[in-house]
Design a protein around this nucleic acid. Structure first.
Lengths: 182, 182
DNA sequence: CGGTAGGGATAGGGTTCT
DNA sequence: TAGAACCCTATCCCTACC
């Protein structure tokens, strides 16, 4: 019969994350065509990439797609839930040789569930985006309740201070010193 | 909390086997939607069907799922093992009113473990399939050692002679006079 | 037609119950 | 302890919509 099920290797996963970081989400065919990632992902289709990204993303934030749907169904309460912090999927790690200078404040891990939402919002926009875009993304996708805004705002400021995010003219982007990894 | 464990009735089991014979394995939602079987199986989900089929199939071939895993772990040796013949699950019985003429050679039971693998291979392909497909299925799923090929080949020829299998243009299918039953 | 998004189905590992 | 029934979720498939 067909293939018995092709499990993703961590190499493939890393390539996918790097591809999303470079081209943005929803650019699956573009990522596949990029020789930087296409070679690693040559046995995957654009749809495979989409599915895997959905799985990675939703797993990091909710633990599973099923739980994500349940969370969506509930009253707009627990957007990012508490037991999501001990996942490793959508995390960001420092690259060996970054071009910029060291941050004034050292980063102290680990990343929180708020961080992960912020990363997803920024990554998804593909361009440096302002605070309002980040909020809109979060509200559109996670039905976060109002009193959850403060911790997110605090993390946004913190991540900027430690150099994980770079803020230019009120717009945020992820530092090139960091990239998604397993 | 949930349901107290709903044991499968033999009616349900028969319906499942007939459904697999008609639609092939892996078509659980289709089987459920087929009014011919859906009414009997109305308290079962597609996943239930899949799980039950796994139990039936693997039990017939190995005695249990655990033994099946062990068999897989061993060196590609004992694909179908010896103590599988005294099971009743994946057997085939003659239907009362078959459309075709009686076979030149009467069938003498019982079915062997080789037969069961052949049935599974053909059933799984959903279409009449040639000898090569059957071998590929067997090798993919049971890691049969080469010197086991002969008994399977002999049974394939025998089952064709007695009319359990029908061979057309080098392709085999199960006779409509026969169906899986408990 | 090719591509993406999203819902939904399947495969296979794991867990619970008996 | 084994086996049957059931759960979990990564992967894969289908369809609507550009």
């Amino acid at each position: 019969m067909g293939a018995p099920k092709q499990k993703w290797t961590s190499d493939e996963e890393t390539a996918l994350k790097a591809g999303v970081l470079k081209h943005g989400t929803g650019k699956w065919r573009t990522i596949l065509s990029d020789p930087e990632f296409g070679s690693v992902l040559k046995s995957r289709s654009n749809v495979d990439l989409k599915d895997k990204w959905r799985n990675i993303s939703v797993t990091a934030l909710f633990g599973s797609r099923r739980k994500a749907k349940l969370a969506h169904k509930r009253t707009p309460s627990s957007g990012a839930n508490q037991d999501a912090d001990n996942t490793t999927a959508l995390t960001i790690v420092a690259l060996a040789n970054g071009p910029t200078s060291p941050p004034p404040v050292p980063f102290e891990g680990p990343f929180t569930s708020e961080d992960k939402i912020i990363f997803e919002a920024i990554t998804n926009s593909k361009k440096p985006c302002d605070k309002k875009s980040i909020w809109r993304y979060i509200e559109d996708n996670f039905m976060m309740e109002p009193n959850k805004k403060r911790p997110v705002a605090l993390r946004l400021k913190y991540l900027t201070n430690v150099g994980v995010l770079i803020k230019t003219k009120h717009r945020y982007k992820i530092s090139p010193n960091f990239m998604a990894a397993a």
